[in-house]
Structures are given as structure tokens and as C-alpha cells.
Simulated assay, not measured.
Amino acid sequence: MNKITKDQFDERELEELNPRNELHWKLWAYDDECCFEMEWDGNQLIFIEFLKPMLKYVTDPNCIKKDTILEALFELAREEFRGRHDSSITQIVDSIKDLKAEGELGEWCKYVSWLNKLYLYRGKFRESEAINLCKYMILPHPNYDELEKARYCTFSFTGRVLKNYSEIKCLVPMPEGALELPEYMYINLNELDWKYNFRLPLELNDI
């Protein structure tokens, strides 16, 4: 891989590194001071179009941005499976088939395999299993429930059932006076399937 340095870019370009630019990836991945544009506003790699470069660089022992990439990989898998986006799920599942992964990347591969088994499963599901599924679909990391904040997240059946889909509401702790931002999962316990919506509950016509 050819060495890329800051000298090859002007000041404006350095301030607006774009993950859609391969040369920018080569600089960003090995320079601790470089950021992609808008990175201050969250991880900018959580898009299926960046799956291939993320796997390319996270497996490079010289890449110093592995934590950022791994965070994005876990988030990407969670969001695509939660939304049941068939095309993206196929790409993610295919990407782990020949991936020789250890450590956290190996955990990501196991996470994808676990999500895919649920995605393909069409049997019955218990309410306790549905609550656990919601935690993995809504909380941002498979180990997130070990963190202090997650202890205060509530997941509960609301009693609403729309076309065999039971509604589960998640409330995440917010600062005092802040607007609540609930998340909703709808799970068919008879033949496992799920739907997701942010902030507002779905109506019958949405199912």
C-alpha cells in the first residue's frame, strides 16, 4: 500500500476528508490527527457502501483507527438487521465467509452470524427472548448492557398487538427536562419477524 502523507493535500482538503475517497482513507487510517468530515458529529462510516474499505483497513496491522472502524461495523450490522434490509444483510453475511478474524473482529463475525440466524428463523419466540432481541437491536453494541447507562434502559410490552406483532417500547435515560425519544420494536412471536420505528409508535396500516 503506497504511503500517503498530508503534504499531498491542501489545507481545505485536509479539513474535509471524505470516506468516499480512497486516497483520503489511506491518509485517515494511519494518521491520528486526521478526521473524516463531520466526524465530530458521530461515526461517519456507518453505511453499507463503506463495508469493503472498513474490512480492508481493520485487518491491516498498521491501521491505527481500528476502534473507530470496529464501532462502525457493529453499528452497521445492528442497523441493517434491525431494518431487515435484505441487500445490505447479504453483503454483510457474505463478507464474513472467508474472513479470518480474531479478537474484536472475530466477535463482530460471531455477532453477524447470530443476527443472521435470527433473521432467517421463522419459528415461535418467547416474550423473554423478544425483550433480549430488542436490547441487541436497539442498544449500540452487543456488550452495551454491561455499561452503567444501559442498566436504566427499560424494555416493556405495551399491550398493543398489530397483526400479530407485539409492541415493545424502549426508553433510554435522558437528562432532566429533555424530550423523551422512545424506540419501538414490533415482534411477531408466532413466526419470528420484527419491525422498528423511532420515536413514534406504528399504526395498523404501517405493519
Rank of each mutant, 00 (worst) to 15 (best):
G42F: 01
G42M: 06
N43C: 07
I48L: 11
E49C: 12
E49H: 05
F50P: 04
L51N: 11
K52Y: 02
K52Q: 14
M54G: 05
M54A: 01
L55F: 04
L55C: 09
K56P: 00
K56E: 10
Y57N: 14
V58H: 00
T59Q: 15
D60Y: 03
P61Y: 00
N62E: 07
C63S: 07
D67M: 05
T68E: 14
T68L: 15
T68D: 15
I69G: 02
I69C: 01
L70N: 11
L70I: 02
E71C: 08
A72G: 13
A72S: 09
A72N: 04
L73R: 02
F74S: 11
E75K: 03
L76D: 15
L76P: 06
R78Y: 02
R78Q: 15
E79Q: 11
R82E: 05
G83L: 15
R84S: 13
H85I: 07
D86E: 12
D86T: 04
T90L: 11
Q91M: 08
I92G: 13
I92T: 07
V93Q: 02
S95L: 01
S95T: 00
I96W: 03
L99F: 01
L99A: 06
L99E: 01
A101G: 10
A101E: 09
E102D: 09
E102P: 01
E102K: 12
G103P: 04
L105P: 02
E107L: 12
E107W: 05
C109M: 00
K110L: 08
K110P: 02
Y111L: 12
Y111C: 15
Y111T: 09
S113A: 12
S113T: 04
W114D: 15
W114S: 10
N116E: 06
L120M: 08
L120K: 13
G123S: 04
G123I: 00
F125Q: 13
F125M: 14
R126D: 05
E127Y: 00
E129A: 11
E129Y: 07
N132W: 08
C134V: 03
Y136W: 02
I138M: 10
L139R: 05
L139M: 09
P140M: 05
P140I: 01
P142Q: 03
Y144G: 00
D145A: 07
D145Y: 03
E146K: 08
L147S: 11
R151W: 05
Y152A: 14
C153Y: 13
S156L: 01
T158E: 13
G159A: 06
G159E: 06
G159I: 02
R160N: 15
R160K: 12
L162I: 10
K163E: 14
E167N: 03
I168V: 14
I168H: 10
C170D: 05
L171F: 04
V172C: 11
P173C: 11
P173S: 13
P175C: 09
A178M: 06
A178N: 06
L179A: 13
E180T: 03
E183W: 04
Y184T: 00
M185P: 11
